[in-house]
Design a protein around this nucleic acid. Structure first.
Lengths: 246, 246
DNA sequence: TCGGCTCTCGCACAGTGTTCGAGCCCAATG
DNA sequence: CATTGGGCTCGAACACTGTGCGAGAGCCGA
């Protein structure tokens, strides 16, 4: 194994399998994913993963350099779940929406990914495939050069940023095991105590009453509203900067 | 201490200090922040934090319920760094830009925050202050009701999502200790190997050559481009949905 | 002087990621 | 057929983690 490569799994030549091993990288990653989904990042330990696979904990280290690398693989596995439409099926707007929706829901299905996204650049094969399709999509829409990559970046940023905020509230619900109404009640006195400092927020909160509505729906609406603004902004840019060669 | 509150520090009545303790919550949080900034989340352990403060590790547990809660406090401390302009200084567009810029740069100054944002809802006092100001700002711009909160949410989502992507690459640079050029060289063969599967990306990459440019500038441009699109999108929405009472 | 409260801290427990080296079993080689 | 070698598994061990518990120090008002 190379000594000090650049640090990402993807740049390291994979192990070649010759015998008939009882463990495989894919198997390990899948099991890790199950553990992570079920119990969050704290639920994944090498020992637990080992016993779950019916093998010793340290056996994993032959297939995977360390836990960090395993997590990198798990993240890419999740990115493999997001569907990015191929060219020509629909308008770029709905194609972009589908991509962003897919990204958002993958992150919400596997919230532990969110905490990992900022730690390593995601350049696994599935991430690359996503990138490829997004480029194709925005290229067809009329973006070129740097604006092309910028366009893909806003879209992903919106999905990631939205999912982060959403995950935060669902994590709180899951951790406390309370319903949304109960949590809202718990928060209420705290908000009222801070009310004098937050007159505008307080007015909006009491008049609009967002805490009484189905939080899942509110979060989804928030995301969807933002997505439409982003797409509007991109469309406007396209109108003002028509592609030279198309 | 209450047994099973809703789970966030902010909802728990704080300890009142009567004696002359040698440790304080603020002191602890500040020291934790230094450790986190210097060495990332892995560098913060209760024992190390204790010795850094010249006291036993378990002494911290009188001021802070557990490590999770300490991290919540640290996150809010960082949010205290972002400046959100008050009303009337400038147009809502530049005010919103300043807010988002502040959020982004605070996250890039303290990248470990990014991994924590999705774990707890951020309702510390500094987060609330940010929320209050953002509400005031977008209220003045003409947003009302749900659209008001949606508008603040897109802005934050863009800052968070962008910072996440940026942090990923700077983390890679920091971890490997290599320059950007070196990393780009390491990645090159991997990208070329995947090239057949990614024709569009490959064409864009080789023609536009983003890997040769100063990455910091490219990331900043990407963020700024996205921000303008978001603001354009919001402005467009305002034009099409004029506020009823203004 | 006597409780009682705030605050500090040493010990201990269960668990973590990871290294090392021993050993298994199968394939190819001599 | 015997021997070597490498793919693969695993147990023991190390240094370290977060945290519960109980003892105790120092100060307060009575």
């Amino acid at each position: 194994m190379p000594d000090s490569f650049t640090g990402s799994v993807w740049l390291r030549p994979p192990r070649v399998r010759t015998g008939q091993p009882s463990l495989s990288r894919e198997q390990i990653v899948r099991a890790a994913l199950e553990l992570l989904d079920a119990e969050g990042p704290a639920g994944l330990s090498m020992r637990r993963l080992g016993t779950r696979l019916g093998s010793g904990a340290t056996s994993l280290y032959w297939h995977v350099a360390n836990k960090d690398e395993l997590l990198e693989l798990a993240v890419d596995e999740v990115l493999g779940e997001v569907y990015v439409p191929e060219l020509g099926d629909t308008s770029w707007r709905v194609a972009a929406s589908i991509s962003a929706n897919g990204m958002r829901s993958a992150l919400l299905r596997h919230p532990w990914v969110i905490g990992l996204l900022g730690q390593h650049p995601t350049l696994g094969p599935n991430a690359m495939r996503m990138g490829e399709r997004l480029v194709a999509l925005f290229l067809a829409a009329g973006f070129e050069g740097m604006a092309l990559s910028h366009a893909t970046a806003v879209l992903n940023a919106h999905a990631i940023g939205s999912a982060t905020s959403e995950a935060a509230v669902t994590a709180a619900l899951k951790r406390t095991g309370k319903t949304y109404e109960e949590v809202a009640e718990d928060i209420e006195p705290y908000l009222e105590r801070l009310a004098p400092d937050n007159p505008n927020y307080e007015k909006w909160r009491t008049e609009t009453g967002p805490l009484r509505r189905d939080p899942e729906k509110v979060l989804e609406e928030t995301y969807a509203f933002g997505l439409e603004r982003v797409l509007d902004g991109l469309e406007l840019w396209l109108e003002k900067n028509p592609a030279a060669d198309r």
